[in-house]
Amino acid sequence: MKFSRYASAIASAALLAATVASPIQGETGLAPPDEKREEENTRDPVLNKYFHEPGGDDQLGHYDVRYFHGIVSYEERTDTQRHMIRAYLKFFNENGLDTWIAHGTLLGWWWNGKRLPWDWDLDTQVSGATLDYLGQHFNQSIHHYVSEDGETKRDFLLDVNPWIWERERGDGMNVIDARWIDIRNGLFIDITGLSETHPDTNPAVWSCKNYHRYRTSDLYPMRESIFEGVPAKIPYAYDKILIEEYQEKALVLTEYEGHDWDPSKKEWIKTQAQIEKEAKEEEERAKKKAEEEAKKTE
């Protein structure tokens, strides 16, 4: 399919976003102390990993092991992520800190201003300067959230990786710079910082530790929009960023991960086959859990 056919669709998405000036902040000062420079050359990659998950697949790889009590249902994940991103964006807005949604979360915004219902986690980005500030002032802080109707109350942990000073990939064990974690079940938002890592040889190119690179003009000036009912910032060249990361088909494909796009409702609807598949998986998990409990009582 020619992407030009869908230019009008992209333009309509842009109507959600008003351009605002928000220049990238300068160098962060994220430099390691001498002892960390020495440790970098001798550390054990596995032992030095800061964030840990209960497993490495699509499901278990998206929980913080400290707060994991089992895989949650589709409905609980939906509820958790909606309130989690609202709480996150509210915190950043109230404290005047820059952040914007990224990766699959940005793709969800493109479709209907909401998360993709099959996404296991949410993704945001911050500037290196903001990342530094979070580490100095908000690390290990608990944030209390109350929904607008007063019916939902949650606590979230903002946890900053102590290896944020390392702006290259390193051993690959600490590519996630921070997380916003629901301490009830361990689901989280991944927060990655963007830094101008080689200003002399590659100026105006900002990258994270997972090899995502953006030019200043791709990011700024940021656009103001709405995500899950809360004010959110969107990269200026969001269409370019999404196509480079997911290809054009991600902006037009209407069947994905057991969901169909309903244009009349502007929602992704779970297919009957997916409903039956999840019911079977839930039945198998319950059976396995019952067997494990039975073994404990023998």
Rank of each mutant, 00 (worst) to 15 (best):
G96Y: 12
E248C: 03
K265D: 15
D239H: 05
Y67I: 05
I191F: 01
G55I: 07
T80L: 00
D64G: 07
F227E: 06
E94I: 06
Q247H: 12
L134V: 07
S147E: 10
Y145V: 10
R5Y: 02
F156R: 09
Y238D: 05
A17Q: 02
V46E: 10
K270W: 05
Y145S: 08
S141P: 04
Y67S: 04
G128T: 07
E40I: 02
K296L: 11
V65G: 02
N210G: 11
S147H: 08
K153R: 11
L131R: 01
I181P: 06
W268N: 14
L157G: 06
P117R: 13
T99M: 01
R213A: 15
M1K: 00
E291Q: 11
K209T: 08
E94K: 13
K280V: 11
L187Y: 02
E244W: 03
G104A: 15
R184L: 08
E284H: 00
G113K: 05
D262R: 10
Y211P: 06
A14K: 01
R154M: 13
R115M: 15
I275T: 15
A102R: 00
N202E: 15
A250R: 09
G29W: 08
Y88S: 09
K265Y: 09
A9R: 11
A14S: 07
T271E: 12
G61N: 06
Y6P: 06
K289A: 05
L158S: 04
L251A: 09
Y238R: 00
A21T: 14
K233Q: 08
T19K: 12
E35W: 11
E228Q: 14
R5N: 08
E166N: 10
A7Q: 08
W110P: 02
Y256F: 15
T271R: 07
K277A: 10
E35V: 08
T105R: 09
W180D: 14
G70W: 01
N185Y: 03
P203M: 02
C208M: 06
N95V: 01
T130D: 06
E75H: 00
Y214G: 02
E40L: 07
T216V: 04
T192L: 11
K270C: 13
Y63M: 05
W268S: 14
D58I: 01
Y88W: 07
N41F: 00
E148Q: 15
V230W: 13
D218H: 09
E151H: 14
L30S: 13
I85D: 12
G55S: 06
E38Q: 07
D119W: 09
E196F: 07
Q140W: 03
R154V: 08
F138H: 15
F92R: 05
T28S: 15
D79H: 03
T297I: 12
Y50E: 03
P117L: 14
T19V: 15
G170Q: 01
E298D: 13
F156T: 11
E267P: 03
P221N: 10
E281K: 09
Q125P: 02
Y6Q: 05
Q274L: 07
D57W: 03
L107Q: 09
E75F: 00
D190H: 06
W163E: 09
M1L: 02
L158R: 04
T78A: 13
G55H: 05
A9F: 00
